[in-house]
C-alpha cells in the first residue's frame, strides 16, 4: 500500500469515526518512518475536513462528527504517546475560544475547536461560562490573533456584547468572531464582531476570509 493510500485510508477512518482503525493506521505510519506532523496534516486533519464538509451538507450529524473528533484525538495520542502534540506551535495562528459567561452549551464550541485545529490553528480553549476578563487575559498572554465566542442563548447575548466591547479596548485588538443559535450575520455585526460563523464546519472558512481581508 502506498503512502498516499494509507493517508487516504486514515482520513476515511476519521470520517467513519473509527477510533481503533485510526490508531492502528497512525501506528503503522509511525513505524514506516513518517513524521507525526505529516500524518496529522494529511491524514487526521484531512479526515476532519471531510467530516466537516459532510456535516455542513447534513449528510452526517452531531454524533458522527463527534466520533470523528474523538478519532482524531485518539490518533494524535497514538502519534505522541509520551507527551502532547507540541508541534510547530509558534508558527500557528492562535485562537482564544470559549462560551461566554452565563452559558453552558459547549458542543458547538468543541466542534469549532476541532475544525480549526484540523486547519492548523492553535486553539486555546477556555471552556464554558467564561467571564469577559478571562477572555481578555487569554488573548493578551497568548498574543492571540483571533477571539472566538459562542453562545446558544439570547439571555447571554449581553455577556457576548460586553466581551466584544472589552476586547476592542485591548492594545492589540484581535479579530473577533462569534457563533451560536440566536445569532445571524446582522446580530453579529450589531455586537461589534468582525465575523460570524453559521456552523462549526464553516469556522475555518470564516477565519480564512477575515484574515485575507
Amino acid at each position: 500500500m502506498s503512502e498516499r493510500d494509507i493517508l487516504k485510508e486514515l482520513a476515511g477512518k476519521v470520517v467513519e469515526g473509527d477510533e481503533e482503525g485510526t490508531v492502528t493506521l497512525c501506528k503503522k505510519a509511525l513505524e514506516s518512518g513518517w513524521s507525526p506532523q505529516r500524518v496529522i496534516r494529511e491524514g487526521l486533519n484531512q479526515g476532519m475536513r471531510e467530516a466537516g464538509a459532510l456535516f455542513d451538507r447534513s449528510e452526517i450529524f452531531l454524533p458522527e462528527l463527534l466520533l470523528a473528533v474523538e478519532s482524531v484525538k485518539a490518533g494524535i495520542a497514538a502519534l505522541f504517546p509520551t507527551s502532547s502534540s507540541d508541534m510547530e506551535t509558534s508558527e500557528k495562528t492562535k485562537v482564544v475560544l470559549g462560551v461566554v459567561e452565563g452559558d453552558v452549551h459547549e458542543i458547538g464550541k468543541n466542534l469549532v475547536k476541532a475544525m480549526l485545529e484540523a486547519e492548523g490553528y492553535q486553539v486555546i480553549d477556555l471552556g464554558f461560562d467564561v467571564p469577559p476578563r478571562n477572555f481578555l487575559e487569554a488573548v493578551s498572554s497568548n498574543h492571540a490573533e483571533v477571539l472566538a465566542l459562542s453562545t446558544m442563548m439570547t439571555t447571554t447575548l449581553d455577556s457576548m456584547r460586553r466581551t466584544v466591547e472589552m476586547a476592542r479596548s485591548l492594545d492589540t485588538v484581535p479579530l473577533i468572531v462569534v457563533g451560536g443559535a440566536p445569532l445571524n450575520q446582522d446580530i453579529a455585526k450589531d455586537l461589534g464582531a468582525d465575523g460570524y460563523g453559521e456552523n462549526a464546519a464553516r469556522a475555518p472558512e470564516v477565519l480564512r476570509r477575515l484574515m485575507i481581508e
Binding site: G17, L62, P63, E64, L66, L67, E70, H105, I107, N110
Partner: peptide, 11 residues
Amino acid sequence: GAQNLFLDCAR
C-alpha cells in the same frame, strides 16, 4: 451533557 449523550448513543 448532550455531547456525551450523542457519543453514548453511537457507542
